[in-house]
């Protein structure tokens, strides 16, 4: 067995022990709770900042980015609805 094989054997043992330990840590409520709370707080701050920026932008009568996203989404929905109707039309024309 060469040096690399020895090292690999040691690494394998370390990895098995460390992996099991880290999995326990990351599933621990004492870690999950604060981590989730931090993420949630950051997201709420981002959402509030975006909302304030959008309100200001809208107050001068301009469409916000969210308005544009809604408009594009409606167009996509319309495309899907037309495809639905085309399918229904094709089905109604098909001989029974």
């Amino acid at each position: 067995m060469n040096m690399w094989d020895h090292w690999k054997k040691g690494f394998g043992a370390w990895e098995t022990a460390t992996s099991a330990y880290l999995e326990q840590v990351l599933a621990n409520p004492a870690v999950l709770g604060p981590a989730g709370a931090m993420l949630t707080a950051a997201m709420k701050t981002k959402a509030a900042t975006d909302k304030a920026a959008h309100s200001w932008w809208a107050s001068i009568g301009l469409p916000t980015r969210r308005d544009q996203e809604r408009g594009l989404h409606k167009l996509n929905q319309l495309e899907s609805r037309i495809a639905d109707l085309e399918e229904q039309l094709a089905a109604s024309r098909r001989p029974q």
Partner: peptide, 12 residues
């Protein structure tokens, strides 16, 4: 987990 708020994640 109690700290995870999917609504805040999607809104953000």
């Amino acid at each position: 987990s109690p700290g995870f708020d999917v609504g805040a994640l999607v809104d953000g």
